[in-house]
Amino acid sequence: MVRDTFHQKLEHLNQDLLKMGSMVEEAIHKAVTSLMEQDKELAQEVIDNDDVLDDYEAKIEQECIQLIALQQPVAKDLRRIDMISKIVTDLERIGDLAQNVAIVTCELENDRFVKPLVDVPRMAEIAQEMLRECLDAFVNSDVDKARKTAQMDDKVDMLDSQIFRELLTYMMEDPKSIRQGNYLLFVSRYLERAADHATNICERVIYMITADRESY
């Protein structure tokens, strides 16, 4: 009773999830670049592309439901499918957050930044790395990598509060900077949330492999 067809379909599902993962990673990268370079066109591209991500989420969820209904998976196969259908929700949310950053780009298109953006791109880099690493852990069923990646979230949280303190100072000094300062605070929070979703993905990958819950 070797179930080749089923396992091929499962592999196909893995590939779809990875593809969506790399699209989301690219969305964060482009969104933050658009902000740094005040490139409205690039921001618009991120905003427009969000529909594609939403469609991907729906497609993968549908494939999961279909595999459960038609193949009655159990044990690690069932956990994998269940986790994939949860991971796509995290990915879709990260995509939304990238879109939110792109919207801020459009709002600040003609502003002069009150200070050079240093920590925001660092946050984005870590969030992207977390996303890459957790999907890598997913493909290779690598528990240690998932655990290490989840721990990276602390750095992002630290940067978030650093940005908060810094921007607060600027806004207190000059009320004209409040509008921009607020938008940048949002960006910091969007990226912090994106890293939280990547942490969720790490937890799901750990559960998928070990059948035990761990939280970070």
Partner: peptide
């Protein structure tokens, strides 16, 4: 057991 119930051999 896992291989059998998930259809990886049998």
């Amino acid at each position: 057991t896992e291989d059998y119930i998930t259809g990886r051999f049998g």
